[in-house]
Design a protein around this nucleic acid. Structure first.
Ligand SMILES: [Mn+2]
Ligand SMILES: [Mn+2]
Ligand SMILES: [Mn+2]
Ligand SMILES: [Mn+2]
Lengths: 226, 226
DNA sequence: GGGAATAATAAGGTCAACCATATATAAATT
DNA sequence: AATTTATATATGGTTGACCTTATTATTCCC
């Protein structure tokens, strides 16, 4: 059970699986390939390799799932990622939209000693600047109990819990519109035919239009007022 | 002149060259291979590749040297390395002997924004915890004007400027004997036939024996008292 | 100058992680 | 049931960074 060093590629596949997996923890290989900007053939090959290492299981035509061991690794990568996001944001004052990308490099170069010392230095933060929970050293964390902004009923006001996007341009776009953890959003209108939402941020009077696919990245509280 | 991402391997070769190069900046490929724990054939192959990229020049049977471009990259890697050493030591309280190794991983995963923000966060440190100078953003630094402890005359007392070792066990060994930057060392005796030195640390009365090859790693002030 | 040591090159191989193109198979839809 | 779509697998290739085992070329030293 000694943790030999896994490649950056391996870690990224496992992390992507943790981020994309639904209720039953299954991910379609095509989704994975998409997320990692890799062909489906490459993702399939990689899943075979990870399968041989006991990190994933593949049920053909159904999808792949993390094993216990695989999930352990994935949670640890997520932990490193989000701790670095905290450090980069709170101490280095790095731009919010760049946090994911910059931390995504550091996460693979971070030894356990550094991870734990960083966690202590940061005061054991519970969430990263994008609002997502930080797994503890054992991989445990309280999952977000929210829903995507895209599923909120028109007229309701909700609070943003987290932003799940990873692409810099998407994060920049959301940041510029103040769609950040802690902010309040009222859904004024939902255009038909999968059209954009019209949102009111923090009770301001200037409204914001947001495409549905972008709204899927924004996780909000389920319990709303009004 | 846009800095495309160089591989970890490339950065390590260039850094090793900067660390090993003598007055005329030339390094024997065999020394490089040794340092990087790689066969001479592999190092030769790599030098060909780096030559094609304009990072090094190879004069057969003489050695390799960094080009201006290559030196620029190398200094930047050293900068990242030593800034991380500062952070790990001063803020994360990581053990001194582990600093090099842990920072050596992080250095390759550090974007320019992070490097510069880290430098600012640390207050633009001039040296790393091992006593070596930190190049500035342009790659400039004042080289250490010291000599190896192995070359100090018997009877002289000198101050340690820096420790150039990188291996964890060597660093641990030196740390346990207090051979650290800032400490004073008197050379009591030098055994014949490349035998060990007998040292007196900080005027204490308990003496320390140190092999000559280890003493080469310890850089001390040239100007000594007594 | 000649031999020993050192350095370089040649040749052939491995391995991880990617690629494209083609074919096979299962699932979903009409 | 038949067709379309999604998924998987089979082949064959590439690249970077390693390896081993020769063989050749140069430099160093006696
Ligand atoms: Mn990453
Ligand atoms: Mn904690
Ligand atoms: Mn390194
Ligand atoms: Mn500075």
């Amino acid at each position: 059970m000694i943790a030999q060093h896994l490649s950056e590629s391996t870690e990224m596949y496992l992390k992507a699986m943790a981020e994309l997996s639904d209720h039953d923890n299954v991910v379609a290989i095509a989704r994975l390939a998409e997320r990692l900007s890799v062909t489906a053939v490459s993702a399939n090959e990689m899943m075979r390799r990870l399968g041989e290492q006991g990190l994933v299981t593949h049920t053909p035509y159904k999808g792949v799932a993390l094993t216990v061991k695989g999930r352990e690794v994935a949670c640890n990568v997520v932990r490193r990622q989000r701790l670095w996001e905290c450090f980069l944001y709170d101490h280095l004052k790095i731009e919010w939209s760049q946090l994911y990308e910059l931390a995504c490099s550091l996460e693979h170069a971070t030894a356990p000693e550094v991870t734990e010392a960083l966690d202590l230095f940061l005061g054991h933060p519970k969430t990263c600047p994008r609002g997502n929970p930080i797994p503890d050293a054992d991989g445990l964390f309280v999952p977000l109990s929210g829903i995507p902004l895209s599923e909120v009923e028109v007229g309701k006001t909700v609070r943003v819990l987290a932003v799940n996007a990873t692409a810099k341009d998407v994060l920049k776009y959301l940041f510029e519109r103040n769609l950040l953890p802690g902010h309040e959003v009222k859904v004024i209108e939902a255009a038909p035919l999968q059209g954009p939402l019209t949102l009111r941020l923090d009770g301001k009077n200037k409204d914001v239009a947001l495409g549905l696919s972008l709204a899927e990245f924004v996780v909000v509280e389920e319990n709303s007022n009004q």
